[in-house]
């Protein structure tokens, strides 16, 4: 009874695969041109080296995380998409809650596939340049992986929760607004971090608890373990707390989405 959603996800993954695969293809092709030179830089700013002595895996996972986050937000309003003509799925021999759960489970599976696909492409690209042997793992690899997926799931959950009970067709607007709000909020939190506007900073960092971008921006990622993030509250320090927060909010968002969808009247 989730057949339509399966077809939807298949189509979404195809588009995603084509776009991301195409990008990689371009990079690889350009990289293989006779006079190409490139710098390998990690995203973690001041810790980077500009030689090809090591490539930090966490840097790649930062990239794949963001690509997956984009994918996750695009597919996140799957319940809302049924709301125009919802009689189709609500007159099937399956309970609404159960159906919503399976939609979310399928979406989650697709998010994992997207992530794995992006990682695989990175590996292939590096392999084509013979750089695989330089890839290194450090203490930031696991956190980047876990929180990257966590943020994708968190944002997905928030969007599902905000859109599932709305009239059909509103999904796109919700997604778009969330991207704008997330980046604006993160910037505001970062801008007020200097110390001059403590009250506003507290407000923005508090709001950032539910802001997916705050958990996966370079502001935050450079501060694993020891450092606090300038855009998140002090209490949310460290990988464990942030993992719990992202995955937890994701789960809450999905639960709210299911509850909201069940109560909807057509």
């Amino acid at each position: 009874m989730t057949y339509a959603q399966v077809l939807r996800l298949r189509r979404a993954l195809l588009v995603y695969g084509t776009v991301v695969g195409g990008l990689f293809l371009i990079v690889v092709l350009f990289g293989h041109l006779p006079n190409a030179t490139f710098d390998v830089e990690t995203t973690f700013g001041h810790h980077a080296t500009k030689s090809v002595s090591s490539i930090n895996l966490s840097g790649l996972l930062f990239f794949t995380g963001w690509v997956t986050i984009i994918f996750a937000t695009v597919i996140s309003t799957s319940l809302n998409r049924e709301n125009d003509g919802v009689e189709m799925v609500w007159t099937k021999p399956i309970a609404r809650g159960r159906l919503a759960f399976w939609y979310i489970a399928l979406d989650f599976g697709a998010i994992l596939v997207a992530y794995a696909f992006a990682v695989a492409l990175c590996v292939l690209a590096l392999a084509s340049f013979g750089l695989l042997k330089y890839v290194s793992v450090d203490g930031r690899t696991i956190p980047t992986l876990v929180i990257g997926l966590g943020v994708a799931f968190m944002w997905y959950g928030l969007l599902q929760g905000l859109s599932s009970w709305q009239r059909g067709g509103r999904g796109g607007m919700v997604i778009g607004l969330s991207w704008a709000a997330a980046f604006v909020l993160t910037s505001l939190a970062g801008a007020t971090a200097g110390g001059g506007l403590p009250l506003l900073h507290s407000l923005f960092t508090a709001l950032d608890v539910v802001n997916p971008v705050a958990y996966f921006s370079s502001y935050t990622l450079s501060g694993y373990g020891a450092h606090a993030s300038p855009v998140l509250p002090q209490a949310l320090a460290g990988t464990l707390m942030r993992s719990v927060a992202t995955w937890g909010i994701g789960i809450l968002g999905c639960a709210a989405a299911i509850a909201g969808w069940k109560r909807l009247e057509v």
């Binding site: 339509a4 077809l7 919802v86 007159t91 399956i94």
Partner: peptide, 27 residues
């Protein structure tokens, strides 16, 4: 029990074959 609503509740982007397959898997 089946319901045929007044306004179409079909998936416009799917084919008739898709809808039949949907039914095959659902009932």
């Amino acid at each position: 029990l089946t319901y045929v609503p007044e306004r179409s509740a079909l998936y416009e982007w799917l084919t008739l074959a898709d809808h039949l397959e949907f039914n095959r898997r659902s009932y």
